[in-house]
């Protein structure tokens, strides 16, 4: 297990542009690094402390009552005094919780309004996150490109400095966008657009999941938010905006890719395999820069040549139930197509 984990770690960190980014695998909701997450964390700590206090007091009283009034061997069998109630005590233990509840309602109202009704800054970066069964399509409408499963955003040195606004849409069923260290979850619902925003103040690779059950591979619908330094983010945007790489050595694979059903679901921008009007090339992830990504299959496997070949051979092995069929390619075709896709940096 740990050996596998270390190998995984080594592989994931390899692409040059991602070098130096720390992996934040544990989505601890008490170690938040963005404003919405922080707001939730502060209220959460308050609520937790109140709850812990109540638990301690009530449980102690109950335990004391049990101990103090337990029947001991040798007790006489007479009945204790019959007490039917006490208005004063009952009023007291109605009013005290009432006050606590009012405090909690006030806290909730403030935090909810603070996060939800926060004005969206005009100069924010916009990304549209589209949930699919079982992967994330990520569009940058202002930059004119589409990627998948890995959301890249710039770091905000000061809170709200360069925030990213996410418009959440779904192609099929309900999903939920959840990267615990950045913000609470927001559902991704068909025929409805939800908006959320994040302003992470530390660079790194933040792990998240789809948090609403969405079918067979709900567990395999993983999510990463990659927070760059500003310059690196701009470099990344520039690289993604480039047309797909053309490498003569991969011509055979490209021909195979373009001649087969691959293009029905996957698009490669500015090639014959680009997305068409009838939905062609829109069902699966955009592959224009697939080789620049950390993972394949929405985070289920790392993006290595070996994994890529295995994936093309039979996607149902790594991620059973996903909608990509085994294309029944020959070994040579697999090798070619994989080689072509690896050139798409």
């Amino acid at each position: 297990m740990t050996k596998r984990f270390r190998r995984l770690l080594a592989l994931t960190l390899s692409p040059a542009i991602l070098a130096g980014l720390e992996e934040r695998r544990v989505g601890n909701i008490f170690q938040t690094v963005a404003t919405p997450g922080d707001a939730v964390r502060q209220s959460a700590i308050l609520v937790l402390s109140i709850a812990a206090g109540i638990f301690l007091v009530v449980a102690t009283v109950a335990a004391y009552a049990i101990f103090r009034f337990r029947r001991r061997p040798g007790d006489d069998l007479t009945e204790p005094p019959q007490v039917y109630g006490s208005t004063q005590i009952e009023i007291a233990w109605t009013v005290i919780p009432l006050l606590i509840v009012f405090v909690l309602i006030g806290v909730t109202a403030r935090v909810v309004a603070g996060v939800q009704d926060h004005p969206i800054p005009k100069d924010a970066i916009h990304a549209t996150v589209v949930g699919h069964q079982w992967w994330w399509e990520i569009r940058y409408p202002d930059y004119g490109f589409t990627t998948a499963n890995e959301l890249h955003v710039p770091v905000s040195e000061k809170p709200g400095e360069t925030p990213t606004v996410l418009r959440l849409q779904s192609m099929d069923v309900i999903h939920s966008f959840w990267v615990p260290q950045l913000a609470g979850k927001t559902d991704v619902i068909p025929n409805r657009e939800n908006v959320m925003w994040i302003d992470p103040r530390e660079t790194g690779i933040y792990f998240g999941n789809c948090a609403e059950y969405c079918g067979t591979q709900h567990a395999g619908m993983l999510l990463k938010v990659i927070v760059h330094q500003k310059a690196e983010f701009e470099a990344w945007v520039a690289s993604q905006q480039q047309v797909a790489a053309e490498d003569a050595s991969a011509a055979a694979g490209r021909a195979t890719f373009e001649s087969l059903a691959c293009v029905n679901c996957h698009a490669i921008r500015d090639t014959p395999a680009q997305a068409g009007h009838t939905g062609r090339g829109k069902f699966g992830p955009d592959l224009t820069h697939v080789a620049s990504r950390l993972t394949l299959a929405s985070g289920v496997i790392t993006n290595t040549p070996e994994h890529l070949r295995e994936w093309i051979r039979d996607p149902q092995v790594a991620k059973p139930g996903n909608f990509m069929p085994a294309m029944q390619l020959t070994e040579q075709q697999i090798k070619d197509v994989a080689a072509y896709l690896e050139t798409l940096k």
Binding site: I29, G37, A39, V40, S43, A44, V47, L104, V107, T108, V111, V112, V115, S176, W178, P180, A183, G184, K185, T186, A211, E212, Y213
Partner: peptide, 10 residues
Amino acid sequence: VASFDWQLSD
């Protein structure tokens, strides 16, 4: 507490 629930829900 609605805001805490954004993290805890599901």
